[in-house]
Design a protein around this nucleic acid. Sequence first.
DNA 1: CTTAGGG
DNA 2: CCCTAAG
Length: 601
Amino acid sequence: MEPVALAEAEQLVERTLDANSDSAAAVPAPSSPKHIANPVVYQLVRVDGNGRLVPATDDEVMEVEDMVDEDKCQISSVADTGLIEGSISNEELSHGSSDLKDSEGRTQSENSKVNSQKFNARIEYIGVMLEKVKKEERLRLSVGERRHKGENSSQKAVPQLSPPVNDSSTNQSEASGKCLTISDREAIAKSSSSVTYISSKPDFSKIKGEICLDNLSIKELHETFRATFGRETTVKDKLWLKRRIAMGLTNSCDVPTTSFIIRNNTIVTTVSEEEEEKCGMQQSEDVIKVDEKINSSCEDSPIISLNNQHVHVSLSGKREREPEEHELKNEIPHTEINEQTAAKRVRKPTRRYIEELSETDTRESNGRSVFAVKTGEHCQSLRPHDQPFQNTGLDVMTVVTREESFGGSGVQVPFVSRVRGGRRPRKNFVSFLNCHPSGSMAAELITNALGVCISQQESENVESDVKDTLPSEQHEQLVNSEAEEMLNSCSGQQQSVELKNLGSCGNDSDDMTTEPAAKGVERRKHHRAWTLSEVTKLVEGVSRYGAGKWSEIKRVAFAPSSYRTSVDLKDKWRNLLRASFALTLADKAILFSEHWCRRRT
DNA sequence: CTTAGGG
DNA sequence: CCCTAAG
């Protein structure tokens, strides 16, 4: 184990603290008679394999000097290092000690301002660095232990699950480094429950033993979360918390939602009765213990805790306790939204899926293909590859698909052939796109023209907006068809029926039933072509109420249309989005190819 | 019942 | 468009 060096930091801290105490006097600081000779309790040591503290050597001192000076020093230089334990006495920091001597011989008043700034920056930097080192150490330990114990689980070794600490903390230190007041520092340091780079650290004493996360309240889960990741979370989703904690404890993202147990940092798939019993018996005890053991002393070495660690996490079992109402009512802060949404809703496999699976097996045994029927009904399950574009008779369409490689992924994108100068019905549309290759930009323009405010995410549907600007009904329908075609060619779904309907029906013509069934192509049971006005209403509804408020939109914009359910609206919107995405891709492809051709010639 | 998402 | 899970 490489020795870790932070030693010079001690001198820096002491020195700057010295000067800082002077500036601190300007602030109404709480007066305290006690002066401590060594105000900084910052252990600059490394911990060797046995957990003993080893004083820093001069080399380490030098190394730390560099690290401190280098503002954004990479943590990789200390990645494989031992553990550093340290703590800073806040009271002592804030009060300072007037009778400390300035080792440089300068007067305190001269240096106070500069040094206080330096001090703030450095003290915070050190905190950040400590945090990093500890995380590294924790990761290293857990990985090593797992390797050592060698469970037979199938968990994937993932890098650190908890996000990097330094994001917020470094920003914070940057922001506060210049103007952090004493009281601010006190507040930060004293609030052990808030996100502070100094106090927040993974606390293994709190997550050792067996914990049944199911029985923990949100608050307790938050405690455990902090103990696991060394940082706070405000997520109120119990399942999310439990999964995250389980992930952290197992160092794996392969955490099922049901029926799993974690022991020794790994997931075991089966539960012995004895363990279940153990879990039930120990849980309350451990929870209490956990609450008591906060901020234990420095010699409570994580190494020891880890070695004794026998984590037993069970997310299964009884249904989770219903969260308290007020807990759920709190809205999730923006900083956690990504994590929140990252926790995708898990669904158990649908009945159809299971059926199909079993049917596959059956087919394999008796040699009969069940899928042949199914794919007949749901031809969209075929990939575009398998079902190449067919001309549906609308000769205005020049949409083909072609293989394009974007970012290494061979995406098959619809491709609108652009014959410049060719007089084609959708010239307006094409020329518009030519002028505004960026889909969102076009959508914005159109949106502004319509006087509708659509959010960025919603503005993706270029074509549905674009067609609104087209002058003639015919063009609108064509463009609408084009959008549909885009979608169809993209999803591999052939709906020539719909295209023909679009071509013939005007606005809200309910002649669906009179429309003859397309030759050779079976239509869906209750298919109704989407008319332009419907799409327009849908788009406006989404722009007004937001995507997802389908029932609202249905109620307001599609009240009389009993045949458009909210699900239909949702589906249509999804299709529009897909189509617009395809358009965007196609447009990029065209630009790219044009650019490429130009360079060649 | 509504929403989300796979088919 | 259909179906279904989840809430």
